[in-house]
Simulated assay, not measured.
Amino acid sequence: MRQAERLAGLGGALLAGALLCADAAAQPAAPDLGKLLATGGVSQLEGAGGGGITPWALITGYGSRDSYGANAHYTAVRSQDYGLDAYGVAVGLADRVELSLARQQFRGSLAPLAQLRIQQDIVGVKLRLAGDAVYDQDRWLPQIAVGAMYKRNRGVGGLGALGVGNVRQLGAKDDRGVDYYVAATKILFEYSLLLNGTLRATKANQMGILGFGGDRGDNYQAMAEVSAAYLINRKLAAGVEYRRKPHNLGVDREKAYYDVFLAYFPNKHVSVTAAYAVLGDITVFNPQRQHGWYLSLQTGF
């Protein structure tokens, strides 16, 4: 309980610090689109700026440190037995603070979970602490940011015949929780390369879609996430991502996520990301390795 209270206090302090930084920033009349193309990243599945499955230290949008930027996104993931749709909005303030809202809608497509429906809401905050991934080319210090994601599961639909309407009835300890992370991102323009490492403290099962904690464990665990992207040209990037996840539920054979992706940035208002993702086993009811396609559209400034 004390650990949970300390972590909750840390999240509150992080949010308060981010809002103070945002309030201290000048209020420009219009966004300046001052950042280089693609340097805001794309929208990650939980709404943060970064790759497809992991947040980066980059602040979303194209607003410079004297301005702001914002975007909206929609992402679809399809595997053999499941589908996930995610959509949301995010804003970057003074290239220092990022605030995001996202909703995930998860569903089954094959028996015995063909009617399964789960929704989750996510509120995110990110604060850049040090470094500049673009302008610090003569230094090895990466851009470093800390962030938090508050997640609230909205319940389980389609399993009424089994008497299941909440993730706690599947073995989760809670239907809401907070992820905390620190991310470090380095862009090496000389090699057309972006490297990112993220360390996340989490109790979430399948990002929180199956709740938080469970019969196998209910403690925060540190999970590593890594990304690498190669800039083929100004508008096109290819890369890989890997994300470790805890295994808290007996009914969920949770495994790491990983993907290979291609992101296209025709201009500073639109980006399209396509990927092939491997999601591992998701439940014992459809016990096979899940894999399939990922497509995301982002629009903003």
Results as ranks from 00 to 15, higher is better:
V226I: 10
T198C: 07
D85Q: 12
Q137K: 13
P287G: 02
K203D: 03
A18Y: 04
A263C: 02
W293F: 15
G124M: 01
D259S: 10
A133L: 00
A76L: 13
S64C: 03
G300S: 04
Y68V: 04
A38F: 15
Q298I: 02
T198K: 04
L162F: 10
F189P: 12
R128H: 05
L99E: 10
D175N: 13
W140D: 08
D252K: 00
R78P: 02
I187N: 14
G108P: 01
L199P: 00
R168N: 09
V125Y: 04
A238N: 01
G157N: 08
S43I: 06
A161N: 06
A183K: 09
Y181A: 12
F189T: 13
D132S: 03
H247I: 08
L127C: 02
L19F: 10
L199I: 06
T283P: 01
F265Y: 11
L159T: 01
A224S: 14
I118N: 15
N233H: 07
E190I: 06
R107N: 13
A238D: 01
N153D: 05
L188V: 12
L194D: 08
V270R: 11
V284M: 04
R65M: 12
Q105C: 08
G160E: 15
L193D: 07
A94K: 09
L159F: 05
G157K: 10
A224I: 11
M223G: 01
R78K: 11
